[in-house]
Write a protein that binds this DNA or RNA. Structure first.
Length: 462
DNA sequence: TCTGGGGTCCTAATCCTA
DNA sequence: TCTGTAGGATTAGGACCC
């Protein structure tokens, strides 16, 4: 999907269509998750600190991510992919590999192209959003093709043309080559994919180590025989928080670690898992990051056990100077617990860990009444004015724009944050389902947005 | 005004054990 | 019983991805 989060927000909010939209954390330490193509014109991109984005595009709309909303769209798209083939490997909410041959959806270039064209049309019809398709003989090339296809396009790499196409490209084009590896290669005088191939496998291994060296050399020769794997099992579960202000108080640090341990266990249990290795992550005031881990005798999903292990790990960490991030994770996952085995043996366990978890009280946060949390971008409903979304809030006021995915750009009104007529609402579907028997399909609710890059946002950010 | 959150994979050092 | 060694497990850190 193209600039997925931002595009979903634009489809959901007519007044944002054609405008620069930036989705990400809005706190003092937030970063950009996705920038719309209109925002990218100003040099805003993913992972950029939000403060920098605001300097570059002061007139963009800044929104917090709504993952539940994006997930519903993602499920629709994944459903379309699974209709093409049983072999679908999701990489994230907005990206997946599909083995078209395994599904019988394609057997040569022409049939693949046709499947791709249909898929893009289906995604448009079902979600109202644009997605790009990369078609190639292997995963690495399909990925590169889809990058080239963005936004709103389709690129097919013909078999036999792979090496010629890759050769002149930057080494950074290859998946797995980030800033560090790119630098490493540059210092060795290797800038293009051709130069990786020329350097030879031994040199690559010498430069980058065994695994990375072999893998990169193979990719440079357009060799990638990794299969598309549906159903990949999670290897770890973790939660982490970056704090708006560094925490100096050791007691507060300890309480936060307990909270994170509980949250991690909740996620673990939600997935029906347990784990044997507990990991504590600490990012200090100077951004130096350290991890400490401990492996238990057997897997657990007991909050008390994870809390205690995390606390022990914290004992070995010096937090003077302050910490900006804390995290707790569990790896070495299993779908059973050691306690299960003991319980089976003893047969006398009565109180489930559920209750222990329920006793944990949230700490370290000022309680805020739910009705006062008006987060930018989130949907609301007003008793008299209908559906809208929060444009901003503060100083006891909340500004709402009243519009729906299918309406014209709407009016803005401001209310007191405790206005009883205003309440949070679920997102509206982007595409309205037609009534049964009316063709059965879906109709795109959004007016056809111009796909030409229109360079909106007149003027430049100063 | 620096730099999120949730992951995966790899490497290297160290420790333990057969 | 002592010693050397090979290999697996554990631990910590780093790179990368979306």
């Amino acid at each position: 999907m193209d600039a997925f989060f931002a595009q979903a927000e634009q489809a959901s909010k007519p007044s944002l269509r054609g405008r620069a939209v930036v989705v990400g954390g809005l706190g003092p330490r937030g970063v950009v998750a996705t920038a719309s193509y209109e925002a990218r014109v100003f040099g805003v991109h993913s992972a950029m600190p939000m403060a920098q984005a605001r300097r570059r595009a002061p007139n963009a709309a800044y929104l917090v991510p709504r993952f539940a909303f994006y997930r519903t769209i993602s499920e629709q798209v994944m459903g379309l992919l699974r209709a093409l083939s049983p072999l679908v490997e999701p990489l994230s909410l907005d990206e997946a590999f599909v083995d078209l041959e395994a599904g019988g959806a394609a057997w040569d270039s022409d049939s693949a192209r046709l499947a791709g064209i249909r898929l893009r049309a289906d995604i448009r019809a079902v979600t109202g959003l644009t997605g790009s398709v990369g078609l190639a003989s292997c995963k690495m090339l399909a990925k590169i093709a889809s990058e080239q296809a963005k936004p709103d396009g389709l690129v097919l790499i013909e078999p036999g043309t792979e090496r010629a196409l890759l050769g002149p490209m930057s080494v950074r084009t290859l998946p797995g080559v980030g800033p560090a590896t790119g630098d490493h290669l540059r210092r060795a005088g290797i800038l293009t994919i051709d130069e990786i191939a020329e350097a030879g496998e031994d040199e690559l291994v010498r430069l980058l180590g065994k695994a990375h060296g072999h893998a990169l050399y193979a990719m440079a020769l357009a060799r990638d025989d990794r299969p598309v794997v549906a159903e990949r099992e999670a290897k770890s579960v973790s939660v982490e928080d970056t704090y708006d202000v560094d925490i100096h108080d050791r007691v507060r640090v300890e309480l936060e670690v307990q909270r994170l341990a509980d949250r991690c266990v909740r996620r673990l249990r939600g997935a029906g898992l347990s784990g044997r290795t507990i990991v504590l992550k600490v990012r200090r005031y100077d951004f130096s990051t350290l991890t400490r881990s401990e492996t238990l005798r057997g897997p657990t999903d007991d909050p008390a056990v994870v809390r205690e292990a995390a606390a022990r790990l914290l004992d070995s960490v010096d937090s003077t100077g302050g910490v900006r991030l804390l995290g707790v994770g569990v790896s070495g996952l299993a779908d059973f617990t050691q306690e299960d085995l003991f319980a089976q043996a003893a047969g006398d366990r009565t109180d489930g860990p559920e209750e222990e978890l329920a006793e944990v009280e949230p700490v370290g946060e000022v309680p805020v009444p739910v009705e006062h949390q008006w987060r930018p971008g989130h949907d609301v409903r007003h008793a008299g004015l209908g559906h809208g979304w929060v444009q901003g809030s503060g100083l006891g006021r909340v500004t709402v724009r009243f519009e729906t995915p299918e309406s014209e750009p709407g009016r803005v009104r401001t209310f007191r944050t405790d206005d009883p007529e205003l309440e949070p609402a679920d997102p509206l579907p982007l595409v309205r389902r037609r009534p049964e028997g009316d063709g059965g399909g879906a109709v795109a609710g959004a007016p056809d947005p111009e796909t030409e890059p229109s360079g909106v946002e007149s003027g430049n950010s100063a």
